[in-house]
Nucleic acid binder design. Structure first.
Lengths: 251, 251
DNA sequence: CTGTTTATCGTCAAGGAGACGACTATGATC
DNA sequence: GATCATAGTCGTCTCCTTGACGATAAACAG
């Protein structure tokens, strides 16, 4: 097949972001309201076109900053920012009614942020519980949560992102990406409980995380911000892989 | 940001394939020799442009069939074909010197095939040990294997594919995708040994795989094709997830 | 018939995980 | 200030899985 510039069809390439955090004991995703058709007025994942000279990860980082002000740190970063990784790519020919768009979805795990920033282009943005965005089957929507229908194939993308997060905190130290720089064992446990939607035994969890070398390093301080007895503060250790993994309860 | 068709730069979108198999106790990847510049004469991963009305997975399946004659079965298929899944997407602005190309890499796991089929476009193709393609650091190339420099960023893509395969056979039944429809426990063990590059205890491995419900179902037959005492034949059971996982020995 | 190869079963000790009792140190409430 | 509720932390016990490895079984090669 000789090279012929006219031999390939043109595509638009976008990045979409699944930005997850844990707020008030629930896994939440960042969604923005669409200001123009198609799907005008519907909630969607934040995202945008990749620029001509921009790497995919750079485009994702740029969109993230525009939407939340967060700066990501890569696989080995040390900033106060969020964890960012590529999730998957969605390219159904008709996923966007306007044109052929291939979207490279990225997953962002962030500590709880006070309020989502209204996007640079003035779209409204908010955190929504993943449960209510994923609809029935993925945990029942609670009374009062109207089921939200995300635009495009964003419900599928979000589901894949949530699944990735659920799987990854099992065998990596990624759950700490949901925590502030210093956190307690109990706060970390509540992250696991929120992401998995289960209750974990505080004593066994404590034994597990403090007994895994390199997972947590004590900072020396304590806090009572969760009430009760003061708890030791930790920072994430250097270990990125948990071996043996944190086991997710059956059911 | 109102919709403006001129607001986004055009991209070419391709699929690249990391086709892995196990041949004579080694993990091998399918590579094709490039017939035109850039990287003319160099080995590369098979792949090609996504067509205008074609889904990404469909494009990967089409390329796979063109290169190998294999028909993939999806996440839940039952054919005699290979396992196919999306791997990751590579979009560095300068990864292809000709133009802006975003490549959606796919991972294919296949049973051993007699000889690779010369591609539809007459490029030569062959199986190469992953070890010799990944160069030093990823297991030393054996004497006589000249180090192969893959075209574009295909070495990185291959590395990511091999890593995915190594990780996934740990907690899924995917290793059976490397086996013929009926196989013995010993054959399955040799798959793990080749992919991980380690030696496993045959007795413990046997206990593990036969003791995991839904992983293997006996067909009733036996074979002596590996020599020695006749071994029971099995087919892959319905279970896709191994819980608890197959543990990869420490280094 | 004997050695070699591969398959399969069994045993034992070490370690991790689930269940859960007990104790500790705070703030809130009476 | 005593009491209570809330979290955090340490221990214990049992069950199960794993890793190491002995032993037996059933084929084939000489």
């Amino acid at each position: 097949m000789p090279y012929d510039p006219s031999a390939f069809p043109p595509f638009a390439v976008t990045v979409d972001l699944v930005v997850l955090t844990v707020r008030s004991h629930a896994l939440c995703a960042l969604v923005v309201r669409r200001g123009e058709p198609p799907y005008q007025g519907r909630w969607a994942l934040p995202g945008g076109f990749v620029r001509a000279d921009e790497d995919l990860a750079a485009a994702a980082a740029r969109e993230l900053k525009e939407e939340t002000g967060l700066r990501p740190h890569g696989p080995e970063g040390k900033d106060t920012g969020a964890h960012l990784e590529q999730l998957a790519t969605y390219g159904d020919p008709y996923r966007d009614p306007r044109m052929r768009v291939v979207s490279v979805a990225h997953l962002v795990l962030s500590p709880d942020l006070p309020p989502p920033i209204a996007g640079g282009d003035a779209r409204s943005a908010r955190w929504s519980p993943a449960e209510s965005l994923l609809g029935p089957g993925e945990g029942l929507s609670r009374d009062g949560d109207q089921p939200v229908q995300l635009a495009f194939d964003h419900a599928q993308i979000l589901l894949d992102g949530v699944e990735r997060a659920r799987a990854k905190i099992e065998y990596s130290s990624l759950a700490t990406a949901f925590c502030p720089p210093e956190f307690t064992v109990g706060e970390l446990r509540r992250v696991y409980e929120a992401v998995w939607g289960v209750a974990l035994d505080p004593r066994n969890f404590h034994r597990k995380v403090t007994g895994t070398p390199g997972f947590l390093v004590p900072t020396g301080g304590t806090t009572t911000r969760q009430g009760g007895r003061p708890a030791q503060l930790f920072r994430a250790g250097g270990a990125t892989l948990l071996n043996p993994p944190m086991l997710r309860p059956e059911v």
